[in-house]
C-alpha cells in the first residue's frame, strides 16, 4: 500500500503553471496601467501616484503578513477585526508612550497572533476556525468601549509619520521597507525555506527536521503583528482609533495575496508577488472610479477576484479532498 494514488502532474505542465503564477500578475498590472493611462492621461502623474501609493500602504502591510500565513497553507480571517481593536489601543497608548505606542501595539499583536497560532497548531483545528472565532472576539471587544472612537491629539509626535519624505508618503516607505525586509528574510534565510516546506508538504517537512510547529506559530504571530501595524497606520492617517478601522480590508488583502500569485494551498508564492497583487487591487479600484462605475461595484469585484484568482493559482495536484 505504499504507492498512493496522488494525481501526478507532468513536470512540463507544472513548470508552465508556475510560470503562469509568476508572470501573469505582472502582465495584468502592466496592461491595467497602460489601459488606464490611455483612458486618462494624468494617471501616471506624480500626484496620482502619490495618492495610489499612500492608499496602498496599509493594504501592503496587511498582505505581507497574510502572505506568510498563506504560504504555510493557512489563512487568518481575524486581521481586519484585529486592526480595529489595535487602532483603539494605539490611540489610547499614544498620549503616554508617543511613538513607543506603535511598538507596544505591535508586540500586543505578536502576542495575540502567537495565542491564535498555538491554538491552531496544538489543538489541531483549522486556522480559519480559530481566526473566525478571533474575528468575532476582537470585533466584539473593540465595540465594548463607550466612545465610538478615540482621537489622537493633533500635536502628537506620531502624526509626523503621516508626512512625506522627498515626495514619498512616509507611511508608504514604512510599508515598503516591511515588505522588503520580509521578502529578504523569506529569500535569503532558512525561514523562507521552512515556510515553503511546511506549505508544500507538512509531513515531509516534519520528518526532515523542519521546525514545523514553531514556523506555523511564528507565521501567525507575524501576520497579526502586521495587522496591528496596519491598524496603527490607518489610525495615524485618520487621526483617530475606532473599531471600524480596517474593517473592510480582509477581502482586498486576500485578493491581493492570491492575485499576486501566492497559491491558497500553500508552498508557492512570495512577498514580491504580493506587492504586485496589492498594486493590481489598488489600480483596479482607481480604474473603477476612472471609468465611472465606482465604489458600488467594489464588493462584487473583490469577491469575483478572490474566487477567480484562487481557482487559477491552486495547485490541483496537491488537493485530494477539497472541503
Amino acid at each position: 500500500m505504499t504507492a498512493t494514488a496522488t494525481v501526478v502532474v507532468p513536470p512540463k505542465q507544472r513548470r508552465e503553471l508556475d510560470a503562469l503564477r509568476r508572470f501573469a500578475p505582472v502582465l495584468v498590472l502592466v496592461g491595467l496601467v497602460i489601459g488606464l493611462t490611455l483612458k486618462r492621461s494624468d494617471f501616471l502623474s506624480i500626484g496620482q501616484q502619490q495618492q495610489l501609493v499612500e492608499s496602498a500602504a496599509p493594504l501592503l502591510v496587511f498582505a505581507t503578513g497574510m502572505t506568510v500565513v498563506v504560504m504555510c497553507g493557512g489563512i487568518d480571517l481575524s486581521i481586519a477585526a484585529f486592526a480595529g481593536f489595535a487602532s483603539l489601543w494605539f490611540a489610547r497608548f499614544v498620549p503616554h508612550l508617543g511613538i513607543g505606542a506603535l511598538v507596544a501595539v505591535m508586540l500586543l499583536g505578536a502576542a495575540i497572533g502567537t495565542v491564535q497560532g498555538v491554538i491552531h497548531v496544538k489543538a489541531q483545528i483549522p486556522s480559519f476556525v480559530v481566526t473566525l472565532g478571533g474575528l468575532a472576539l476582537w470585533a466584539g471587544l473593540a465595540l465594548l468601549q463607550d466612545k465610538p472612537s478615540i482621537l489622537i491629539a493633533s500635536n502628537s509626535s506620531v502624526l509626523a509619520l503621516d508626512g512625506r519624505l522627498v515626495g514619498v508618503p512616509r507611511l508608504a516607505i514604512l510599508a515598503g521597507s516591511l515588505a522588503l525586509v520580509t521578502g529578504l528574510l523569506m529569500w535569503a534565510t532558512p525561514v523562507g525555506r521552512w515556510v515553503r516546506a511546511v506549505g508544500s508538504n507538512e509531513t515531509a517537512a516534519y520528518l526532515s527536521g523542519v521546525p514545523v510547529v514553531a514556523t506555523r506559530i511564528a507565521a501567525f504571530a507575524f501576520c497579526t503583528m502586521c495587522a496591528a501595524l496596519a491598524g496603527c497606520m490607518v489610525a495615524i492617517d485618520q487621526t483617530n482609533g475606532s473599531p471600524g478601522t480596517g474593517r473592510t480590508q480582509l477581502l482586498p488583502t486576500v485578493a491581493a495575496v492570491v492575485v499576486g500569485g501566492t497559491a491558497i494551498t500553500g508552498g508557492v508564492g512570495g512577498v514580491g508577488r504580493t506587492v504586485v497583487g496589492v498594486l493590481i487591487v489598488k489600480v483596479l479600484g482607481t480604474g473603477l472610479s476612472i471609468i465611472g462605475i465606482g465604489q458600488k461595484w467594489e464588493n462584487i469585484l473583490y469577491g469575483a477576484l478572490v474566487i477567480v484568482a484562487a481557482a487559477l493559482t491552486i495547485d490541483g495536484s496537491k488537493l485530494t479532498v477539497v472541503k
Binding site: W297, Y302, G303, A310, A311, I314, G316
Partner: peptide, 27 residues
C-alpha cells in the same frame, strides 16, 4: 460548483461569494 469543479476551498469561495452578494444588495 466553484468548490467542487474549480477545487477552491469552501471558506475561500464563500468569503468571495459573500462579497458578491453584498455588492448585488448594494447595487
Amino acid at each position: 460548483l466553484i468548490t467542487t469543479r474549480l477545487k477552491v476551498p469552501s471558506f475561500m469561495t464563500t468569503v468571495g461569494m459573500s462579497a458578491v452578494g453584498l455588492g448585488v444588495a448594494q447595487l
